[in-house]
Computed example of a mutant assay.
Amino acid sequence: METKRYFVELSYNGTDFHGWQTQPNGITVQECLDKALSTYFRQEIISLGCGRTDAGVHATQFYAHFDLVAVSEQQLVKAVAGINAMLPYSIAIASIFEVAPDAHARFDATAREYKYYLHFKKNPFKLESSWLYKGTLDMQKMNEAAQILLKHRDFSCFSKSNTQTFTNNCKISSAKFETQGESLVFTIKADRFLRNMVRAIMGTLVMVGKGDIEVGAVEEIILSKNRSKAGQSVPACGLYLVAVEYPYIKMRK
């Protein structure tokens, strides 16, 4: 029987998961998704995601691809509701659609966008969805420092050690802080991200906002290529993957 490749678009609250990728010591988003897909379509399915989010990180838009014995478009539409019924409430499928046989959820992505949320007053409704920061921050200085990121390519200083990557080069196209009600939101977009990169960048920019380091020190940290020079990783709860772009998919936000 003919096998075809499909993309699944989903979102998830990462609070209760040990990240996206299947692992032996904790429940993951991929594990739940593959189980639901395999059960619904009655064949073993192993998906491959557009990236690897860490434990506690959320996604409002995430893509994965998988191969499946060909089904009709009408069957795919019906499958969305059926698979959603099998998934925990913290994972939701938006759509499943056929793509080219060589389409790749990870390698074909041309851009990814993350948002990081933090708030300054205790709020029970933001528990596990935003970082409660107990202090004040200079947003203007943080934005000045964020613009330095756009001038560089090698971000070894913001990457976890011992990662299996051929290069630590990334092209950041935008990075900006904005206020949103009582929250401060950092939005960053790039062609790719290293493991733990956004949380390490945030930790470094917070150091600028607190006044622990000057704006210009961010450039020195980047040029050092030394992870120990950068700030600590901020909590995972405030981080969201919000958009993944492909040349053959019209973006929906």
Results as ranks from 00 to 15, higher is better:
166 F>S: 14
120 F>L: 11
78 K>G: 10
159 S>H: 05
42 R>W: 05
33 L>C: 08
163 T>D: 11
67 D>A: 07
188 I>C: 06
84 N>Q: 11
103 A>Q: 13
58 H>L: 02
140 Q>V: 04
106 R>A: 15
100 A>S: 15
8 V>R: 04
205 L>A: 09
158 F>I: 08
237 C>G: 01
14 G>F: 01
233 S>I: 03
63 Y>M: 00
25 N>I: 04
58 H>Y: 02
68 L>M: 05
216 G>L: 12
187 T>I: 07
219 E>T: 07
232 Q>F: 13
253 K>S: 12
38 S>P: 00
226 N>V: 10
168 N>S: 15
113 E>K: 14
172 I>F: 11
169 N>M: 12
203 G>F: 02
147 Q>N: 15
220 E>F: 08
143 N>C: 09
221 I>N: 05
187 T>V: 13
148 I>Q: 09
180 Q>R: 09
84 N>F: 03
177 F>T: 08
53 T>K: 03
99 V>G: 10
203 G>H: 01
170 C>A: 15
30 Q>L: 05
187 T>M: 03
49 G>K: 03
213 I>G: 03
189 K>P: 01
162 N>F: 14
53 T>R: 03
20 W>D: 00
88 P>F: 08
73 E>P: 02
172 I>R: 00
138 D>Y: 08
126 K>P: 09
112 R>K: 15
225 K>L: 09
216 G>Y: 10
225 K>F: 10
153 R>A: 15
104 H>F: 15
99 V>A: 14
225 K>C: 10
105 A>N: 01
21 Q>Y: 00
150 L>R: 15
96 I>K: 11
231 G>P: 07
159 S>G: 09
190 A>Y: 04
45 I>Y: 00
248 Y>R: 04
73 E>N: 12
64 A>T: 03
13 N>A: 13
55 A>Y: 01
90 S>C: 05
165 T>M: 13
203 G>I: 00
78 K>F: 14
8 V>Y: 00
78 K>A: 13
253 K>I: 12
125 F>K: 09
146 A>Y: 07
6 Y>H: 06
81 A>Y: 11
29 V>M: 02
110 T>H: 10
214 E>P: 05
219 E>W: 07
196 N>K: 08
76 L>C: 13
174 S>N: 09
101 P>E: 15
60 T>F: 01
9 E>F: 05
158 F>R: 11
14 G>H: 06
139 M>L: 15
100 A>H: 14
191 D>P: 12
87 L>G: 02
8 V>G: 02
52 R>M: 05
55 A>T: 04
205 L>P: 04
114 Y>N: 07
127 L>A: 15
177 F>N: 09
161 S>R: 06
89 Y>M: 14
46 I>T: 08
165 T>D: 14
39 T>C: 12
80 V>G: 06
237 C>L: 04
3 T>C: 09
59 A>I: 02
41 F>E: 13
192 R>Q: 13
82 G>M: 03
160 K>Q: 13
82 G>N: 11
81 A>D: 12
208 V>A: 05
161 S>E: 12
238 G>E: 04
22 T>I: 08
13 N>Y: 04
45 I>M: 06
99 V>H: 12
66 F>S: 04
